[in-house]
Amino acid sequence: MSDTPRRFPAALFARGQEPDPRFTLANERTFLSWIGAALALIAAGVALEALGLGLTSGLRIAASMLLIAAGIATPVQAWLGWYCTELALREGRPLPAPFLVAPLALVVVAAGVLVALGVLLR
């Protein structure tokens, strides 16, 4: 197509061909779900410190930092996941699995354990 507008990132849109628009839109919504998860993790980390809740301070700070760190890492998954999925759609390949799922689940479990210990040991 000669009237195709230039799109960012050019390296992605130079490859393959336009997929079904519904798949591109679904990929966007998955990206936005990851951003929502990131915002929730950040909010949980800040809320722990802002509210205090009478938890043991060391455990509370550790849980808060863990949650916020996960919230900073999640947008990276969101962007790379969007990029790799869009590329796979354009080239007609199987979709990639999200790479940050297992570490993220571990971090959330660890934060939960820290908060539980903070409640028990206060």
Binding site: M1, T4, P5, R7, F8, P9, L12, F13, E18, P21, T24, L25, E28, F31, L32, I35, A38, L39, I42, G45, V46, M65, I68, A69, G71, I72, T74, P75, V76, A78, W79, W82, Y83, E86
Partner: peptide, 23 residues
């Protein structure tokens, strides 16, 4: 031809900045 990845990247970057300020 749908819109590209500029807005997704901007939103992801904004979220990272928000997370750093939150830390």
């Amino acid at each position: 031809t749908l819109a590209g990845g500029a807005l997704p990247l901007l939103v992801a970057a904004t979220t990272v900045v928000l997370g750093c300020v939150a830390a």
